[in-house]
Computed example of a mutant assay.
Amino acid sequence: MAVMFSPALASADSVLQQYSVFTSGDLTANSHVNYNTWVGGNLTGSANSVFAMNAFTGTYGLTVAGTVSGTNIQVNNGKSVAITSAPPAGTFLLNGGGGQVVPTAGLAAQTTAMTTELVNNSAAFAALATNQAALSAGGVFTVNAATAVNGVAVFSIDGSVLSNSQYQNGFQIAGDYASVGSIIINVTGGTSVSSNYNFIGAWSNVDRSKVLWNFENATSLTLNNNFYGTILAMKADVTQGSVSIDSNVFAKSLNFNGEIHGPLYTGFVPTSGAVPEPSSMVMSATALAAALGFARRRVRSRV
């Protein structure tokens, strides 16, 4: 049975609203991320890897819970790096003045808590009742503000649509997209999904900070075209070709060869009791809760 959650935006504590890239596992970086990044596993990079490409409020541009392979990985705009153990000299190139590499305890435990939150977010998005018309034969998402619930427009498509040659001319958007607060697209179907076609027409006019694609069941996601909106795929290994993502990525792992532009997600996040705070899910001991709270205060001063 579909459940309609409160349309109130989540607090600033929502992981979805704090990061441009989050992986519970490994990240291989071959291009740049405009804003802040959290790597729950290991980071592989090079001089072509650039984090915090754009200026934003906050101390840290990159957090790595695991190890780092590579040299001259760039972190710009005076942002610092939080990492479990200090890496070898020459691993990072801190640009803009003021940035530091800060060994930080508790990052693995914090990654677990944040991952659980995001997995629960994904399940809650998937449980939202679809309130928008099906994608048209011509590949048009038509937003109807009158049927959106409290400003949240919810679509549902099968993942195979994204690689169906019927839509090789691209996907379009029409209707009341400027009048709604969030556009949620739940992607169902198989576990292996490829996105092969571009977003064209009025998509360039949509506020991409309020668009979210929820791939709840995907375990593999390949992006072969420029993509528009935040990607939530916490079970998936995501491969991004030499194409741009005009928003953010939350995934199990990510290998990216194109730019990730942001901006940070500002749309609807489910806030009902079905999506508890991380503390009620993984912090059963008082001492652990205190430790995680201390770690989060040290690394969360980002955006």
Rank of each mutant, 00 (worst) to 15 (best):
N217P: 08
E117Q: 15
V64R: 01
P88M: 06
E216Y: 14
S195F: 00
L128R: 01
F215I: 06
N34E: 14
N217V: 13
S160R: 03
A233S: 14
V243G: 00
S301E: 15
A202Q: 05
F227T: 04
H32K: 09
T130Y: 02
V211P: 00
V269T: 15
F256L: 13
G96T: 12
L223P: 05
A8G: 09
A218T: 10
V81S: 06
L27G: 08
G58W: 08
G151T: 09
S220I: 11
P270V: 07
N186T: 07
E277P: 05
T116M: 15
S156K: 09
L162C: 11
S163L: 03
Y167G: 00
L212G: 02
D237I: 09
T84Q: 07
L94R: 05
A82N: 12
P278N: 07
D26C: 06
S280Y: 13
T91C: 14
L9N: 09
A124K: 02
V187H: 04
S160V: 12
T147W: 05
G40K: 04
L94E: 11
S11F: 09
T84D: 10
M234E: 03
F125E: 00
Y19I: 03
A174W: 00
T59A: 04
T57V: 08
R297C: 06
A10C: 11
F294R: 11
V140A: 00
I245W: 08
D246A: 08
T84W: 01
L264N: 12
L254H: 06
F256E: 06
T57H: 08
D237Y: 03
R297T: 15
T63G: 02
Q166P: 02
P278S: 12
A2G: 13
T219W: 04
S284Y: 15
G106T: 06
V3G: 06
V140Q: 01
N217M: 10
G70F: 04
S247L: 08
A109V: 14
A2V: 11
G78V: 08
W38H: 09
V238K: 04
A52S: 14
G25D: 14
T112A: 04
N225H: 02
T219L: 01
K210D: 03
F22G: 02
T59R: 11
F268M: 10
V39R: 02
Y35L: 11
L43P: 02
Y60L: 08
A137S: 15
M114W: 04
G96Y: 03
G58C: 10
N205Q: 15
T271Y: 09
T37P: 12
N131Y: 01
L221F: 06
N42E: 10
S192G: 07
V75S: 03
A123T: 08
D158S: 12
N196R: 09
A109T: 14
A145F: 00
L107W: 00
S46H: 12
T23K: 04
I183S: 00
N76I: 05
V243R: 04
G170S: 04
I184R: 01
S24P: 07
M53N: 14
S6T: 14
L62V: 02
H32N: 15
